[in-house]
């Protein structure tokens, strides 16, 4: 009779441990690290705010843009202002 061996480590944990941990740069907020002055966040500065939109015209999540919550909120609010003034799209056209 073969004795069943119980796995000590769950499959999920095993996958997590074997996951490749590449040399990823730590994500920093570009405004708190003062790479970009916070005064650039302005609804009139459309060219800059376009960096925080997806191709479809949605607001990029902080998880991807790397903004801290304070500046993510500011950016999102300014984008919404620009949208009401028709400076930025609610929904980008698919050409």
């Amino acid at each position: 009779m073969v004795k069943k061996v119980k796995l000590r480590v769950s499959g999920r944990l095993l996958r997590k441990k074997t996951r490749r941990t590449g040399f990823k740069m730590a994500k920093r907020c570009r405004f708190t690290s003062e790479e970009v002055p916070a005064s650039a966040i302005d609804f009139k500065n459309v060219m800059f705010l376009k960096n925080f939109l997806t191709e479809r015209g949605k607001i990029l999540p902080a998880r991807i843009s790397g903004n801290c919550s304070k500046y993510q909120r500011l950016v999102a609010n300014e984008i919404k202002k620009a949208r009401t003034m028709a400076l930025m799209p609610y929904l980008a056209r698919r050409d």
Binding site: S39, A40, D42, F43, K44, N45, V46, M47, F48, K81, T84, M85, A86, L87
Partner: peptide, 19 residues
Amino acid sequence: MRHLVNKLDVKGAWEYQRP
């Protein structure tokens, strides 16, 4: 067609980037 009133920072500069 549209208008938007925005408060400015008193200490801030008048310069801005326009499209």
